[in-house]
Design a protein around this nucleic acid. Structure first.
Length: 728
DNA sequence: AGCACGCCGACT
DNA sequence: GTCGGCGTGCTC
């Protein structure tokens, strides 16, 4: 039997009659025309003959449901939450009128079964129930809708992130019995934090504490998260942990295995195959596994009776999904914690402005160690500023400041030494070497960029080449050196320390761990291997490059990456030393020296509030071809307190600090050569929902009449992004 | 997006 | 009178 012809579609010449039947049975008794008849002995479901269906077809039908008739033979399987296939499109009308076949079969989810329909016309029938597995329960549906609203996106888009593609073989596998809940854990190293033990106890007794946790440096964080999970399981509830990448996921996974044994939790990461992925996801949904650790797609995992959500290192950009509507793990888990009234734990060695705001607003409590503990766990941090560099003859020649050289040599006597080098292509604004005035284009004052070592300078805005730059402010002729990549740094260090092995960890090859023996480990930020017993020292080179990015988050980001590397170094008491090559007067550098990421975030937050920047205000970016953008803004009914900034031209071509094509797409950088513009729209606290709603409405309206407008322009529709990542 | 409907000009 | 151009609007 062909799938296409199952159900009502197989009627051939009888179609008009059977559809008349549907009309008669289901329609509100307005149009009394067709007589009830049977079709191959099959009729409609006797109870609740209407299935409300979410059609899985992106932006066009923003969050509208479509009603379909439920044939009797699908009655049992056509339950809320199951995947179905339905005819959708203008062509199906012809089917109804008995003319000919038409309209494609597309996927959808049954959202609800009803007795009646609001639709004033004859209903088409469900074509097929793809699987009786109810993958979209009401909790997940409501979460997806909340996320769609928050991000001005469509429900269908969010569901594509939230429900993994079906895999029939995985579905067929029998589910094992869920394991019994573990006993409440010992607090372990949670005792190091002010209210740590209390926090665990609350979870274990069924409470829903919410905390922003500033983790002490060192490797204990993974086990501390595992203990929080254990406490939650002990209360009979489930737990969800989301980390930025597969490496920390493996750490938490290992800690959970140590603490709970296998079978208690699922690991949901992107690098598992489709079958395995769906299988693990199903085990979670079916309740045979009660705890989940995973990367960002796991933020929607349908954990039963959720008692705790955890996000680790929320400042990592991997927590921001790169598909529309670009939800962020921290925000989604906040929604889940609020909606499910469950515990919330945001942990990091560092602290984002958003995390500080959660504490400031009273939504979450701080979970921190006292200064004594911090001093006992953190390494000694020393700085090399411009003045030191200027005096440092040796640094010119060897690139390595004398202090860094000394610390490395001393550290290598006791163990491995980490060298953090900014990623190449992480191109900041160039500045005068002498006075630090940013290098600007003579024609349009845009930022000058170096295309490659030795190549000419070019303006990032207008593209004009600059052959003979000199500083307008002090007349200097030298620009700050470009970042030297990890590989070349490794070569140089290898020559400087010929007796010591040099290893590199970076984008193409990430090392997970290194032994405790003396070695130089050159790494880009985020790729630092964990050293057995901790690094004896770390050198954080080219700090200016991390701080110089034209981005609101540059300072916070630099601090996060430094703290991330320095947290792998032994405590000061064990000789651990960090050298950061950056101006000691700058706020992020001072925060690193004092090991006070929270203080840094709190100060940043105050500044953002003053300037009306996120997260105190909410922002959205809208980008597109100038005419389309103008048309969009003309049609949008923005909240009265919205402020529109721009438009300004956006540039493509040069890879931004985030690098990936997907990230650029998310930021609204044009795909082709035609120039695009971008506006930022800002609303005060409390108007975020109204802003998102108005953007969604405007986008929907544009899509409705936009087909021809967009065709003429030859381009795509405008791109809307709530909470854009990079706002220069 | 697709696709059909419908209201206008050139044709047997 | 009919065929067919593509502008407009709907999809249960």
């Amino acid at each position: 039997m062909s799938r296409e012809n199952e159900g009502f579609e197989g009627g051939g010449a009888e179609e008009p009659e059977q559809l008349a039947l549907i009309r008669e049975s289901v329609r509100r008794a307005k149009v009394p025309r067709a007589k009830p008849r049977t079709w191959r002995g099959a009729a409609l479901a006797k109870e609740l003959p209407v299935a409300r269906v979410l059609v899985d077809k992106g932006v066009l039908h923003l969050d509208r449901y479509f009603d379909y008739a439920v044939p009797e033979e699908l009655d049992a399987e056509a339950q809320p939450g199951v995947r179905v296939r339905v005819r959708f499109g203008a062509g199906s009308r012809n089917v109804r009128e008995g003319r000919r076949e038409g309209g494609g079969l597309i996927d959808g989810f049954i959202v609800e079964r009803c007795a009646e329909t609001d639709y004033n016309g004859p209903l088409a029938a469900l074509a097929q129930v793809v699987s009786p597995e109810p993958v979209l329960d009401s909790g997940l549906l409501e979460l997806a809708r909340a996320v769609a609203d928050r991000y001005a996106g469509s429900l269908a888009d969010v569901l594509q992130l939230a429900v993994p593609p079906r895999h029939a073989r995985a579905e067929a596998k029998a589910a094992p019995e869920p394991p019994a809940p573990p006993a409440a854990p010992e607090p372990g190293s949670w005792g190091r934090y002010g209210h740590g033990v209390e926090f665990l106890r609350s979870l274990a007794s069924g409470g829903a504490p919410r905390a922003v946790w500033t983790a002490l440096p060192g490797p204990e964080w993974a086990e501390e998260i595992a203990r929080a999970v254990q406490a939650t399981l002990a209360s009979g509830r489930g737990a969800l942990v989301v980390v930025p990448t597969g490496r920390p996921a493996a750490r938490v996974d290992a800690a959970l295995n140590r603490l709970l044994g296998p079978g208690q939790h699922a690991l949901l990461t992107a690098d598992a195959g489709q079958e395995r992925r769906y299988q693990e996801w199903l085990a979670v949904r079916r309740g045979t596994v009660r705890a989940v650790v995973g990367t960002r797609a796991a933020m929607f995992a349908p954990v039963r009776n959720l008692g705790l959500v955890v996000v680790w290192d929320d400042g990592d950009s991997n927590h921001s999904d790169d598909r529309a509507p670009f939800p962020h793990v921290r925000e989604v888990l906040e929604l889940r914690a609020t909606r499910d009234k469950c515990g919330f734990l945001l942990g990091s060695w560092s602290c984002t402005v958003e995390a500080a705001q959660l504490v400031e607003s009273g939504w979450a409590a701080p979970l921190v160690a006292d200064r004594e503990q911090v001093r006992g766990a953190a390494p000694l941090v020393r700085t090399v500023g411009d003045l030191d560099l200027a005096r440092d003859e040796a640094a010119r020649a060897a690139r390595l400041p004398t202090l860094a050289w000394q610390v490395a040599r001393e550290g290598l006597k006791h163990g491995p030494v980490l060298v953090q080098v900014p990623r190449r292509g992480y191109v900041p604004r160039l500045a005068c070497e002498r006075c630090r005035e940013p290098a600007r284009c003579r024609h349009c004052a845009g930022p000058l960029e170096a295309q490659g070592s030795g190549a000419a300078l070019r303006c990032g805005w207008c593209g004009v080449e600059e052959a003979s730059w000199h500083c307008e402010s002090c007349g200097g002729f030298r620009l700050r050196a470009q970042v030297v990549g990890a590989r070349r740094t490794a070569e140089e260090l290898g020559r400087a320390f010929p007796a010591v092995p040099v290893r590199t960890s970076g984008r193409e090859q990430v090392l997970d761990t290194v032994p405790g023996a003396p070695a130089l480990v050159v790494s880009t930020p985020g790729a630092e291997p964990v050293a057995e017993g901790g690094y004896a020292a770390a050198l954080l080179l080219d700090g200016w490059a991390m701080l110089g990015r034209p981005d609101l988050r540059a300072g916070e980001d630099a601090l996060r990456r430094w703290v991330g590397a320095a947290s792998l170094v032994r405590p000061q008491g064990a000789g651990g030393t960090v050298v950061v090559v950056a101006e000691p007067t700058l706020r992020p550098v001072q925060a690193l020296v004092r090991w006070d990421p929270v203080g840094h975030a709190v100060r940043e937050l105050a500044e953002r509030a003053e300037l009306g920047f996120p997260p105190v205000s909410r922002m959205a970016s809208v980008s597109g071809p100038p005419e389309a953008l103008a048309e969009f803004l003309g049609g949008a009914e923005l909240p009265g307190d919205a402020v529109v900034l721009g438009p300004v031209p956006v540039r493509g071509g040069a890879p931004g600090p985030t690098g990936s094509a997907a990230a650029r797409r998310g930021a609204g950088v044009p795909p082709g050569p035609e120039p695009w513009e971008r506006v930022l729209i800002r609303v005060p606290p409390g108007s975020g929902a109204a802003l998102a709603a108005s953007l969604k409405t405007a986008q929907a309206a544009r899509m409705a009449r936009g087909a021809k407008g967009a065709r003429e322009a030859g381009g795509e529709p405008v791109r809307v992004r709530v909470d854009p990542l990079d706002i220069g």
